[in-house]
């Protein structure tokens, strides 16, 4: 069964064709990073325009790479939220056109749930439950218990900044450019992660996160040290603080839920120190650890198609009536 995936929740337009939920036939991403750099962040109106321009060429190319025509598509999976409303509506309206014209099933997909599905897509295996899921990206830090394709219980989320947002802000402060995550990782490669003592926020205080204090700590460090500040050491120390915090929280969630499997996903899951620290914890505690390769950590439509395939049976409404929802929580009913 061929699932067409469409993703446009933020600043990447993406189209993919995935067979049986686990075999990627084609997966294309049109990034808007350069467009938004001059604004210093994603501008929803500009992003919406670019999604509209990029969508049809991507659709054409994805079909061409997969070597199929429109009539070969069996179902359509599309991100319906959470994300930026204008960009989401472009993808949703594209999907509805095809579903309506060809009378195809359409599966509205939660973007965060799709990030977790990327880990299973990468292993070419269908999801196994239960597992603890950790989604860390530019807009999210969510810790969940997954017990089914759309059965998610949120254990904790960030009270303020997401870790990707933290990296972006610190990178801007240090003059490293945008997006911050890759820049901080690159600079931190030659840094000493123990040079600066940065806080590990909210450890031992439930499953929630808070990363704004870390940002403030780096800001103070920047002011105190002035020209003496070692940027590589700050970057390495910051990544260590984020990794320690996330590893500790994930470990506690695994203990509390008795889950034996951890899935980490989202753009920040591409961060190498974090991946290594999480893998070490899982190996120590006998936990199966699944994390997508970096290319599947950032936003892509292959994960949308995979999650659509895995969750198709849960669609209990007329999907053509679904609307985009900027704040659609994981595991909750489809947005109408």
């Amino acid at each position: 069964m061929i699932t067409l995936g469409i993703e446009s929740s933020c600043d990447d337009t993406s189209v993919a064709l995935v067979e049986d939920g686990i075999r990627v036939m084609s997966s294309l991403v049109s990034s808007q990073v350069e467009v938004h750099q001059r604004f210093g962040g994603v501008v929803p109106e500009v992003a919406s325009r670019k999604h509209l321009e990029a969508m049809l060429p991507l659709l054409q190319q994805a079909l061409g790479i997969a070597g199929v025509e429109f009539d070969a598509i069996d179902q359509i999976a599309v991100t319906a939220g959470p994300g930026l409303l204008g960009p989401l509506l472009v993808g949703l309206s594209t999907a509805k056109a095809l579903a309506w014209r060809y009378r195809l099933p359409m599966i509205p997909v939660n973007h965060l749930e799709a990030h977790l599905a990327a880990a299973f897509l990468a292993t070419h295996k269908h999801p196994r439950f239960p597992y603890v899921g950790l989604i860390v990206s530019g807009g999210h830090a969510n810790l969940v218990l997954a017990e089914g394709p759309r059965a998610f219980t949120t254990l904790g989320r960030t009270a303020d900044d997401a870790p990707g947002e933290l990296f972006d802000k610190v990178a801007r402060l240090l003059g490293l450019g945008y997006p911050g995550g890759p820049a901080i990782q690159k600079s931190g490669l030659i840094g000493d992660p123990k040079r600066y003592k940065l806080p590990r926020p909210m450890l031992g205080k439930g499953h929630g996160f808070s990363f704004s204090g870390l940002k403030t700590a780096v800001l103070h460090l920047h002011e105190q040290e002035g020209d003496q500040l070692s940027v590589p050491d700050v970057c390495a120390s910051l990544q260590a603080a984020v990794a320690d915090t996330l590893v500790s929280k994930a470990s506690a969630a695994l203990s509390e839920t008795n889950a034996k499997r951890l899935v980490m996903a989202g753009g920040v899951a591409a961060n190498k120190p974090l991946r290594e620290a999480m893998a070490a914890m899982c190996e120590r505690d006998g936990i199966e650890f699944l994390v997508p390769p970096p290319a599947l950590c950032t936003d892509n439509a292959a994960m949308t198609a995979a999650q659509g395939f895995f969750s198709a049976a849960s669609v209990d409404i007329d999907p053509l009536l679904v609307n985009a929802r900027a704040d659609w929580p994981m595991g909750t009913p489809f947005p109408l």
Partner: peptide
């Protein structure tokens, strides 16, 4: 309305391409 225009545009452009 930019949102309305884009919803209709995404829908109709896709229909035109597909057919």
């Amino acid at each position: 309305s930019l949102t309305g225009l884009r919803v209709a545009a995404a829908f109709l452009r896709t229909l035109a391409l597909a057919t």
